[in-house]
């Protein structure tokens, strides 16, 4: 039963990772990275590591995305937007 959950989460993570690397939109790539962190925190719960899951849920899907978006905003403020 749990194996289907792992396969499902793994497929979502792989698609999100390949999308994050391939896409031309920086914001979409950053959001896909946050999705990877969120799915990873669920996998950590399955692997009996609740401490790691709490940290990953707060950092991987929350703070990492905020840090990327703040840096991107500063770059946009410095002048013009540019994709890829």
């Amino acid at each position: 039963m749990i194996i289907f959950l792992l396969i499902f989460l793994g497929i979502i993570m792989l698609v999100a990772a390949i999308f994050a690397v391939m896409t031309k939109e920086l914001i979409a790539a950053i959001l896909a990275t946050g999705l990877i962190g969120l799915m990873a925190s669920v996998i950590f719960i399955v692997l009996a590591a609740p401490d790691v899951a709490m940290t990953e849920a707060a950092i991987g899907s929350g703070l990492t995305m905020v840090v990327f978006l703040l840096a991107l905003r500063r770059i946009r403020q410095l002048g013009g937007s540019d994709n890829d």
Binding site: A17, A20, I30, I36, F68
Partner: peptide, 16 residues
Amino acid sequence: RRNLIKIIVGFSIMDT
């Protein structure tokens, strides 16, 4: 990738 932000996104994925 050629864009610095995309390189850092790759680093983040590798970290996970």
